[in-house]
Design a protein around this nucleic acid. Structure first.
Length: 281
DNA sequence: AACATTTGACCATT
DNA sequence: AATGGTCAAATGTT
């Protein structure tokens, strides 16, 4: 869990928020799965957990700002024509592992208002599915160096593991923000039987239930199984696009009412089998 | 024609 | 040599 933080305090905060999110995800998974809870569950309880998750996600995203390499300088356009690259080339840094991405696990379609262009695909050793490479469509127009890697989960093919690199500089303080719609690029090479599900419709940094961690390893390991199960349970299929990258960090986080019964209280213990929680830990 | 995707090759790193 | 990230020509789509 060595996060590339700008400060020890930010690092500690990230870990704490991540821990809180993990707990909230477990809670939501339990609420969604426990049959006994379904009947007399107060309205909005699942909503509440979703909002908790959203807050954590945004806090993590905010904490990650500044820990990544910004634009990184102009890149040569052709491999043959340009002078030999210095050791500061993007390729070098990515391969060298200095630059860590923000890992986001999502289910099916996702949106973030950004449009991506696929520039590569690679078979990864020991991975069932290829890794797909995307860059921001506005890379040339606006010099936006944001990139992402998408890989289908081996444990659950309906889940796509996404790692973001760099930040979008294409839409800050812009009148014309990127189109807040899903843009499906061509056919999927890994979408097995889900033609409308496109991992390269844009996504990330937004509020439909994403799990942010910090790694570039998109291959599944057995210990990720539970995390992915929880992630699926938290994915909210919002289809509302963002109008700007600069979302309000508090939007959707502080606008709920306390969940309670008519008498103003409820016992969470009635809804959750805590023995089951222990099993999950 | 313009733009996006595919895919083999190239390159840096390990 | 193996691996992973990127390029860019070829191809597909609108």
């Amino acid at each position: 869990m060595a996060m590339a933080c700008s400060s020890p305090a930010a690092c500690a905060a990230s870990e704490l928020v991540a821990k809180g999110r993990e707990s909230a995800a477990i809670l939501q998974a339990l609420l969604g799965q426990h049959p006994a809870a379904a009947d007399d569950m107060p309205d909005g309880l699942l909503d509440l957990t979703e909002k908790i998750l959203r807050c954590c996600d945004r806090a993590l995203a905010a904490l990650s700002v500044g820990t990544e390499d910004p634009a990184g300088g102009a890149r040569k356009r052709t491999m043959a024509a340009a002078a030999p690259l210095a050791t500061s080339s993007k390729r070098m840094r990515v391969s060298g592992g200095e630059e860590k991405g923000r890992r986001v696990e999502k289910q099916q379609t996702m949106e973030d208002g950004f449009i991506w262009r696929k520039y590569g695909q690679k078979e990864i050793s020991d991975c069932k599915y290829p890794r797909l490479y995307f860059r921001c469509t506005y890379k040339d127009d606006r010099g936006c160096m944001a990139k992402r890697q998408v890989q289908q989960s081996e444990a659950n093919p309906s889940v796509y593991l996404i790692t973001y690199f760099g930040e979008h500089t294409c839409c800050r303080h812009d009148d014309e923000t990127p189109a807040p719609f899903v843009n499906n690029f061509g056919l999927s090479t890994c979408g097995d039987g889900q033609p409308n599900v496109s991992p390269w419709s844009s996504c990330g940094g937004d509020d439909d239930g994403l799990a942010v961690s910090e790694t570039s390893d998109l291959c599944n390991s057995p210990e990720k199984e539970l995390a992915e199960m929880i992630e699926q349970s938290t994915a909210v299929p919002e289809q509302v696009g963002m109008s700007s990258w600069e979302w309000d960090p508090l939007d959707g986080c502080l606008d709920w009412e306390p969940v309670a019964d008519e008498d103003g209280s409820f016992d969470i213990g009635q809804l959750i089998n805590f023995d089951y929680i222990y099993l999950l830990q």
